[in-house]
Design a protein around this nucleic acid. Structure first.
Length: 515
RNA sequence: GGGCCCGUAGCUCAGCCCGGUAGAGCGGCGGGCUUUUAACCCGUAGAGCUAUACGCGCGGAGGUCCCGGGUUCAAAUCCCGGCGGGCCCGCCA
């Protein structure tokens, strides 16, 4: 297996980029060339000279002509490397070229006889080489373990992952642009908190040495954003990293990003309208259309984001989509029904049971963006009771491609009722601990209640999971596919310096590192 | 937390059932080829290290099929335990 490492040949030729190259003056991107020279005919070339830099992603050697694919981050473009153009001196460099090398090239736009817009290279400089072999071109990197460990390779080589990461940036930018034009401002809330809240989840616990106290990592920015509403920031939002100490699966990851938006003087209806306008705007900005075709596990799904989105009550959705009668059922009948549906009841609240039934029978059938409304009050401690029926809360959830991607409501702004709900949540937690084991509930947050006591206007709020949204739109099977870097347990392996002590010795001497 | 599956060359995988010389394609290296699109054709090394020797030859020792142990004359293969990963189920988005 052991062959002399190729770096020696670069060193021998005096073109080791690690001892000489510090910059490369780029004058054009692949994207620009492809757009600007789109009309160039087959076999035609331009006299214009450009310098591009990027990574060699493909190589086809044909003797004295070589075709390479260069990806410069904007797009990929073919390089044509010809012996007669480059001459014998520079040709020696071409013979060393490997897939994965980072090069700068100078040349002219041409279109080959086969019709591929390319750069006819007149000069090539190595900016960095790959010290490790790249994955095979055809299958690429598919081993899940390696994909998540070598995430930079996954993002470099797997186009669907790469596109999802890029789209996530564009969607977030579109959200910001949209909210900015509506007069919202973005404010960062603390990730280290003395009392966690704003969602039902187990938190990460850590320790602050500075104050000698335990602290929690934010499970949601909600209670802080509402404090900001109290502070007369009547339109606020945050694209917030949230931490929840729960298990990992295809739809959950302990560290995730959501956008939370709060708008004063508005209610949940206003917020649903804002959400459908904002998300459809972002989809159109990012993908050019309200209608998207999504490939997932070989199946094709059409998604239409054009507003208005469908609105369905929770129980209505269960009956309409799930074909199960739940309205007017007694608590005992509900328990019996969930048992028949194979649902294990761990949380005694009626609303929780209804949610479970919904998830089982109705949720998978939702493709187009849909608002599920009229959630039971008892599972919505931060939401305002419905003005029409106090058994329900003015709360909605957003569903898309079978995934829950968001949650919003008319915010509870009555400090006395808020205190009462927190108290009840605490009691519930104590009671449920004996009967059903531990459940998630809001801890009492008196500081937040005090903020409300200074007066929070009627306010509507929403949270949308960015990873879930992108995952649904791109048809990716696991949330980990859209998370740039996930947690991986350490692995044993050797670096080049460990495997090739002579190379290490060379650089230490060459660069006088031991002085 | 419960169940199922996977781990063999740089990459993608076969071999495992039924124990007996560890394989293919791609990639690498060498050669040929001036318009290719997973280019093609020919050749070739590679799963593992050490001592002695300038080198070669000969001889010898040794032995990461994820790791450790067991069964066996013999283990990639069978058994047990572990590590890493994936999927499904239960709970949070």
């Amino acid at each position: 297996m052991k062959q002399r490492h190729r770096i020696w040949r670069f060193i021998e030729l005096g073109i080791d980029p690690y001892t000489s190259v510090y910059r490369y003056q780029v004058t054009a991107t692949a994207e620009f060339i492809k757009k600007y020279y789109a009309d160039l005919g087959k076999g035609e070339s331009s006299e214009d000279t450009y310098k591009l830099a990027g990574r060699v992603m493909g190589l086809r050697r044909h003797g004295r002509i070589v075709f390479a694919i260069l990806n410069d981050g904007s797009d990929s473009i073919q390089l044509v490397l010809r012996y007669d153009v480059l001459g014998p001196e520079k040709w020696r460099l071409i013979e060393l070229l490997n897939i994965g090398d980072v090069v700068g090239v100078e040349g002219n736009p041409i279109r080959t006889l086969r019709g591929e817009l390319s750069i006819l290279v007149r000069d090539l400089k190595y900016l960095a080489i790959t010290w490790r072999d790249f994955p095979e071109k055809w299958h690429g990197l598919v081993d899940a373990d390696k994909r998540y460990r070598l995430r930079y390779l996954d993002m470099m080589l797997n186009e669907n992952v790469r596109q999802a990461i890029i789209s996530m940036y564009r969607i977030e930018k579109a959200f910001r642009d949209f909210l900015d034009s509506e007069g919202f401002i973005e404010i960062h809330t603390p990730k280290l908190q003395p009392i966690y809240g704003g969602a039902l989840a187990r938190p990460f616990k850590t320790h602050m040495y500075a104050l000698g106290v335990d602290a929690y990592l934010s499970i949601a920015p909600e209670t802080y954003l509402k404090r900001l509403v109290v502070a007369n920031f009547f339109k606020v939002y945050e694209i917030a990293v949230c931490f929840r100490n729960e298990d990992i699966d295809a739809e959950h990851y302990p560290e995730f990003v959501q956008i939370e938006i709060y708008k004063a003087f508005a209610d949940w209806e206003d917020m649903m309208r804002l959400v459908e306008r904002m998300v459809s705007y972002a989809v159109k900005e990012t993908y050019g259309s309200y209608k998207l075709t999504v490939e997932k596990n070989g199946e094709t799904v059409e998604l239409d984001f054009a507003p208005p989105w469908r609105r369905l009550g929770l129980e209505e959705a269960i009956e309409l989509l799930g074909k199960v009668k739940v309205r007017d059922l007694s608590y005992e009948e509900l328990l019996k029904l969930s048992k028949e549906l194979g649902i294990e009841v761990k949380d005694p609240r009626r609303g929780k049971i209804l949610e479970k039934i919904f998830e089982k029978v109705a949720q998978p059938k939702i493709a187009n963006p849909t608002f599920i409304t009229m959630f039971p009050r008892d599972v919505s401690p931060l939401a305002r009771p419905s003005r029409k029926d106090p058994r329900y809360a003015e709360r909605f959830e957003i569903y898309l491609a079978g995934l829950e991607v968001g949650n919003g409501y008319s915010e509870l702004n009555n400090p006395v009722v808020q205190y009462y709900f927190f108290k009840k949540e605490e009691e519930l937690r104590r009671k449920a601990a004996d009967k059903f084991g531990e459940i998630e509930a809001h801890p009492m947050d008196k500081d937040y209640v005090r903020a409300l006591e200074y007066g929070m206007p009627p306010t509507a709020g929403v949270g949308i999971g960015i990873y879930r949204l992108v995952m649904a739109i791109h048809g990716l099977p696991s949330i980990k596919d859209v998370i740039p870097f996930t947690f991986v347990l350490p692995e044993d392996f050797k670096t080049i310096a460990e495997v090739e002590p002579e190379i290490l010795k060379y650089y230490v001497e060459k660069l006088r590192l031991s002085d």
